[in-house]
Structure formats: C-alpha cells, structure tokens
C-alpha cells in the first residue's frame, strides 16, 4: 500500500461568487462560555450548498463584515449547514447575538477538504486542539456513518479546561463506537475531571493505532500542529500521512485578496487542509 497521498481530494465543491446568499439561523447551541454552534438553511427557498469535510464558509453579519468559519456539521445532513464559532472579534460577536430566525449572508463552501476518499481502509487519528475539533467533526461524522470503510479510529482532543471542551456529549458517545478510542485532555482541571491532564501531544504515544497504516488529521493552533508532527514522527507516522488545516486572515476566500498567503500557498484556495510535508518548510520559519 502506498504511504503517500495526493493533495486533498480535488473534487470538492467550489463557490465562485463574491455575493453572499441569505441563510436563516435554524438553531443555536451554546457549546462553552465563548463558543456556540448555529445551524443554517437557505432563506427564501434558496438551494442548499453541498460541501466536503474540512471546507469553510464566509459568514456575513449584516453591516459588520465577513468571517471565515469552518463547517462543523455532517456533509450528509442535507438540511442544514452547521458552524461552530468562537467569539473573538466584531463579526463573530455579531453572529453570537443572532437568535433563531435571524438571517446571515453566506458564501461558500471554499477550500480543500480532508482526504476522506484516499484514506479508506486506514486507521485514522484525529488530533484536535480547542475549537480545532470543529473542522474535524464533519470528517469524524462521515467516518462513523461509513464505519466499515475505515480502520481503527482514534480521537485525541485537547482543551484549556473541562469547561472549554466542545461537543462534550458527542465525544462521550463516540467513546462507545466500535474499534474507537477517544482521549480527552485539558491543561488544568479539578478533581471531577477523570480524563487526562496535559498537552494533547502527550496522548499520541499512548494511543493504540498502527503507525504503519494510519493517517492523522490535525487541527489546532500552528504550534500544536508542529508538536503533533514531531510526536507522530517519533512513533513512526511519516508526515506525508499527516494532514493539517491552517488558519489565516481571509477576506475574499478565493485566492484573490492576498491576505492568507503562507509561502506560495493561498490558504483559502490551496488549503486550508494541507499535507504536512508540503508546508513543513514554511512551518520552520517564523512570521511567514
């Protein structure tokens, strides 16, 4: 079996217009103190756009602006587009204030997806830091709805504290899935926390999967992804089988505004999902 993969699946849907389309907030769920999930469906009978796991949309809060938000729902749920958002700036704060029934603008989907087709039959290791679990969730949901297509599933999720764990109940339900290992860790906890305490990378050597066959999909801050690649290399999982998703300031989402450049890559168009060895060179320099 080949140990090398092509770049992310090329057949992912692509949006082209700079014009947003109106979407209605169908439901809203508070995940943590600063993170919430909204489900959207097209307003006025518009057509629902399909997407591939790992892709993102540009969500527009009226008069405030757009923000790049990864899609966190199942690609097979044709009814809604789900986004999990951390409140960090003006646009995400405006989105946070939207009650069900409110309308947002949406452009998308954009970007490269996780390589779901190419990794069939493999052990899959998902490594998530904080809200990094959100862009991984569509991939995880797709795996569980086609469980037989994949090998062992390992989900390693880190958060700042127990109160910052997103998708908490779902993580626990995934623990019950066959041939699946879910390990949670936080940076600090109280005595009620029975999972790990420590950085998420310390979970890698403990997890049970076959490094000779596994593929890792990693999402979190850049530094976490760097350390993850180091740990993976230590246990024998080569970086050509590590996929990461990057985040940068994005304005246009179609590779025209120049903001999200990372070396030669436009993260919005060539990424956000990259094979690690393709971008490692640029990871090793600061302030790229």
């Amino acid at each position: 079996m080949s140990t090398c993969f092509d770049d992310p699946d090329p057949e992912a849907p692509k949006a082209v217009s700079m014009l947003p389309e109106p979407y209605v907030v169908v439901s809203r769920n508070q995940e943590t103190a600063d993170t919430f999930t909204i489900a959207l469906r097209p307003a006025d009978g518009g057509v629902m756009r399909s997407f591939a796991p790992g892709q993102f949309n540009m969500l527009y809060a009226f008069g405030t602006g757009e923000s790049a938000i990864s899609i966190s729902g199942s690609p097979e749920d044709g009814g809604v587009l789900v986004h999990t958002i951390r409140r960090v700036g003006a646009v995400t704060s405006a989105l946070d204030r939207l009650a069900p029934g409110s309308v947002v603008g949406l452009r998308g989907p954009f970007g490269s997806p996780w390589p779901m087709q190419q990794v069939r039959g493999r052990d899959l290791v998902f490594v998530a830091g904080g809200i990094g679990l959100a862009p991984l969730r569509p991939a995880i949901l797709q795996v569980f709805s086609h469980r037989a297509d994949y090998g062992r599933i390992v989900i390693l999720a880190g958060a700042r504290s127990p109160a910052d764990v997103i998708f908490h109940d779902e993580l626990h339900s995934w623990m019950q899935e066959p041939d699946t290992e879910v390990q949670l860790t936080v940076d600090r906890a109280d005595a009620d926390w029975h999972h790990h305490v420590g950085v998420v990378t310390t979970l890698i050597p403990r997890a049970r999967f076959d490094p000779a066959n596994a593929v890792a999909m990693v999402c979190g801050p850049e530094i976490m992804m760097r350390f993850t690649a180091v740990e993976m290399a230590r246990i024998g999982l080569p970086e050509a089988r590590i996929f990461v998703t990057l985040e940068r300031n994005m304005k246009c989402a179609v590779g025209l505004c120049g903001h999200c450049q990372f070396g030669p890559e436009f993260i919005c168009r060539d990424g956000p999902v990259f094979r690690h060895d393709r971008i490692r060179h640029w990871f090793s320099h600061r302030e790229v």
Binding site: V88, G130, R160, D164, R188, G198, V199, T202, M224
Partner: peptide
C-alpha cells in the same frame, strides 16, 4: 516541556509570535 506547552495556552488562539 509539557508544562511549558501548557503554559502557552495552546488552544486559545492561533499561537502567534508575540516577541518578533
């Protein structure tokens, strides 16, 4: 090393350099 990483508050942002 693990303690240092925990101190960096890894998950709360894109961990951008603060001392150029």
């Amino acid at each position: 090393e693990a303690t240092r990483l925990q101190l960096m508050d890894l998950y709360c942002g894109p961990a951008l350099p603060t001392i150029p």
